[in-house]
Design a protein around this nucleic acid. Structure first.
Lengths: 117, 117
DNA sequence: TAGGGTACTATAAAAAATGTAAGTAATGTC
DNA sequence: GACATTACTTACATTTTTTATAGTACCCTA
């Protein structure tokens, strides 16, 4: 996370690949240590920051924030802030976020099969 | 690529997630800058090292080697060496490698849709 | 004997991702 | 007035991934 260096070869390679291959594009969006698990949980409905934190006991707050921000930028989750004190924020999948359901399920199935090799 | 530090928190987190979530497990296997594209190409049939290199003009030989090795370790591709000079090696998907077809296709479809937002 | 082709390997460095630790703001409760 | 609550932010350190560059071995051809 942090900023990407637009001058790096890595950046250029990624860009090129993402343009040509939608799978790579998709993989880049849902890539990242925690993104998939977060989406998995959110498939069951909206959750608060703190609830996610509890579900992912080993994630740091920084990482959770970063991943949620990235998902938000990519329009996979919608962030709702309630003007309360203490603060309350919840996260919910967008339509295309929910569309990840089948993708995740298929990945999961493939993973299961692979594990059993 | 290179060795993973088994003492790092990162390693512990990955392990735990992969055990619990097969999607994450799968994502880790096909993750990495080039793995998915390589698999995509191989879905059409076996290819030689040099052919892959030509198909991925910007990949470095080192990266291609690393990714192929990782895929091989994970039993996604099969490596065949012919005792010739100059050397000839080809790479072909295994059965479970070919099973990635639908996964990739679904990812691709989702990516397309997401792009058009 | 020099050069070409093939599939690599070694080493270093740059870039990106992840983790650690501490702090912030606003309000209600003790 | 001290403290708890919640969802963060910031600065910094470490780990992991990716790129850069230069070799290697082998035989064949010119």
């Amino acid at each position: 996370m942090s900023k990407i260096k637009e001058s790096s070869t890595n950046f250029a390679n990624k860009q090129a690949l993402m343009e040509e291959c939608s799978e790579v594009y998709a993989a880049n969006i849902i890539g990242g240590q925690w993104a998939l698990v977060i989406c998995s949980w959110l498939l069951n409905g909206k959750l608060r920051f703190g609830e996610l934190k509890k579900l992912l006991p080993t994630i740091t707050e920084r990482m959770l924030t970063l991943q949620l921000r990235k998902l938000e930028e990519n329009k996979i989750v919608k962030r709702t802030v309630y003007a309360e004190v203490p603060p309350r924020v919840d996260y919910e999948l967008t339509e295309i976020g929910y569309d990840l359901g089948p993708v995740i399920k298929l990945l999961e199935k493939w993973g299961e099969k692979h594990k059993s090799l």
